[in-house]
């Protein structure tokens, strides 16, 4: 299946810059909204490979246009989706072996977000405050964060400096902080931590894929959009109108798990490339 890459509403995700096409709409930052609209009407597992666009993202690991593989499994838990991802990588690796390319080995590391913070930084990310977090890394790591920065921004900055570069072997990180739920469900763990039901795959120290136990609650989605836009307003970024097409059907979303995988980045990891432009 394919969906339109031009959409009337953009993504309100605070740190994503939408590329607007005149007054006609926005280039998708991911096919998530369009695919969820389909899922709400036809509860079938679906996938597609399509371009995704993110303004201003140019660097060794970023391109403003990149290829995304996104798929949804109806009825799946995140644990089942992890196995699904493992099977997919195994298949791709087998295909690549024919081209003498070092395949991705198994995903043999699985850590919760909290385990990684405790292992490398000796703090619990679900109870730590901003001051303590900023003290864990050198000042330039948080130099770009201003007075409007959130706890989530600090967690991201610290994670990317102190933890991400160590995730060289294929590693799944799960149970992210609740403030980083994006469009995932949140849940309370037995130990009391409130976490978002998400996981990410890292290979070679870079994020390759991002998965959610998908949120199907319209009221909660409206609250998250509003919270994003409040944060956007504080930082002087454009307000993004709610995606009404999605809100109209989101309560009908079947229980499902979904994942987005950057194909260019996976190729970088498989071929050991330093620059995404070389893919």
């Amino acid at each position: 299946m394919t969906t339109a890459t031009l959409r009337s509403a953009g993504s309100s995700e605070v740190h994503l810059e939408n590329i607007q096409v005149g007054r006609q709409g926005y280039l998708q930052t991911s096919p998530e909204y369009a695919m969820k609209c389909l899922l709400a009407k036809h509860p079938l597992s679906i996938f597609q490979i399509c371009p995704a666009y993110r303004g201003g993202e140019i660097g060794r690991r970023h391109q403003m246009e990149f290829q995304m593989l996104e798929w949804y499994r109806c009825g799946y838990s995140l644990a089942e989706l992890m196995s699904d991802l493992q099977a997919m990588l195994k298949h791709v690796s087998a295909q690549m072996a024919e081209y003498n390319i070092q395949p991705i080995i198994r995903i043999n590391e699985r850590y919760s977000y909290r385990e990684l913070f405790e292992k490398h930084l000796k703090v619990n990310p679900h109870s730590v405050d901003v001051t303590v977090l900023a003290g864990l890394v050198s000042p330039e790591i948080t130099a770009h964060l201003d007075e409007h920065a959130t706890l989530g921004d600090y967690l991201d900055a610290v994670f990317s400096d102190a933890i991400e570069p160590r995730l060289l072997a294929p590693t799944i990180v799960y149970d992210f902080p609740a403030c980083q739920a994006a469009l995932a469900e949140t849940k309370q763990l037995k130990n009391g931590d409130l976490v978002s039901d998400r996981f990410e795959l890292y290979v070679g120290g870079i994020e390759i894929a991002n998965a959610y136990q998908e949120l199907g609650d319209g009221q909660e989605l409206i609250r998250r959009f509003a919270s994003n836009n409040r944060q956007r307003q504080l930082s002087g970024k454009p307000i993004i109108e709610d995606d009404m097409e999605l809100l109209a059907v989101i309560d009908d979303l079947p229980k499902c798990a979904g994942i987005a995988l950057g194909i260019d980045r996976l190729t970088m990891a498989l071929r050991g490339l330093e620059d995404i432009a070389a893919v």
């Binding site: 605070v14 740190h15 993202e57 660097g59 060794r60 921004d153 994670f159 990317s160």
Partner: peptide
Amino acid sequence: ENEFVKPGKGQAF
């Protein structure tokens, strides 16, 4: 040299 860094879902620099 100019390196774009975007930590997770966080603010880019």
